[in-house]
Nucleic acid binder design. Structure first.
Lengths: 168, 168
DNA sequence: TTAAAGTTTCAAAAATTATTGAAAATTTAT
DNA sequence: ATAAATTTTCAATAATTTTTGAAACTTTAA
């Protein structure tokens, strides 16, 4: 396969994966494009390569900055802004984990802990089943939270070394 | 909080979390409802409780069966079908992990391994950057795959015991 | 058989989400 | 200050996803 074709295939696959995981397809594609670009790109170049509008490019780039996945770059003597992606895949994974933990896991943990305090009749099957499910989900989510917490602080090789060694 | 209000809150929160993770909100809500129901429910009851149409209920229930999260139950002397959810939260986690691994991780691993064989000029920065990103993502995805593989076979207490002990 | 009960399908409608594009705002060089 | 270059905003439009509901289909009891 040609490099050009391979790039397109990667951008397409990354976009599809993103959309399956609740991430806007275009956002995942812009990220993919920047991930495989040795140089920082301008908004124009991104619009051109992905056939998207200026408005879409601008908002998507802003979101990617909000996720901590890309940064703006100023080139001396140039008026235009350039964008480049952190290429360290472990950083990317940690950054995504960090954001989704904050945006999604923590809010649901909050709801679950409220719900686990609901009082009721221990003889009522409705109550018992509710309480058990909430408690169990709460515990699992707590374990996930702790594991992510560790991951966020960890070096990649140590993390996978530890995890995979345990499971050998 | 009343049990009735707590149930609604859980169903809503579970639906929201689902939609943030690429799972149809209604599907997550039906799953939530069955998770906290001590008894199996009929399509009618589910339609009623969540205010959804028959068609929607039917398709959603079929999808949930496809994900291995709920089952049909026949009651002796009854014409109607009943549905109930596996209440074991570790089973649920494994089942979701198993399906998403099969539906999403494996296809992307396949693409990545094809892309990591693209040949090119090692002096070309375009090629080098592409190759490095693909290779790194491929490695990370491989580690995730191995970890999931272990999780799928593991007992809950052993799994979290091992993982959290390492990270203490 | 027949018909009532229950389930499934799927085209059309509704709801949601993403994208466009042009105007407004901002920045920078002169 | 002026104006050209660039970025941002956001109402309107388009695309996608979800839901509805009624007809078709299936199952079962008599």
């Amino acid at each position: 396969m040609e490099l050009a074709a391979a790039k397109l295939k990667f951008i397409e696959a990354w976009g599809k994966l993103g959309s399956e995981w609740g991430i806007n397809r275009t956002m995942a594609q812009v990220h993919a494009l920047l991930l495989i670009s040795p140089e920082a790109l301008t908004t124009e170049e991104i619009m051109e390569q992905l056939s998207i509008s200026r408005g879409n490019a601008n908002m998507t780039l802003r979101d990617l900055i909000g996720w901590g996945l890309i940064e703006k770059q100023h080139k001396a003597g140039e008026r235009k802004e350039y964008f480049f992606a952190d290429k360290d895949v472990w950083n990317i994974a940690r950054q995504v984990a960090k954001e989704r933990k904050k945006r999604e896991l923590e809010p649901i943990l909050k709801v679950l802990s409220e719900l686990s305090h609901v009082a009721g009749d221990e003889k009522d099957p409705e109550f018992k089943t509710f309480k058990k499910s909430i408690t169990d989900i709460n515990k699992l989510a707590g374990n996930v939270d702790k594991t992510l917490e560790t991951m966020l602080k960890a070096e990649e090789s140590w993390f996978w070394g530890s995890v995979l060694k345990v499971f050998k």
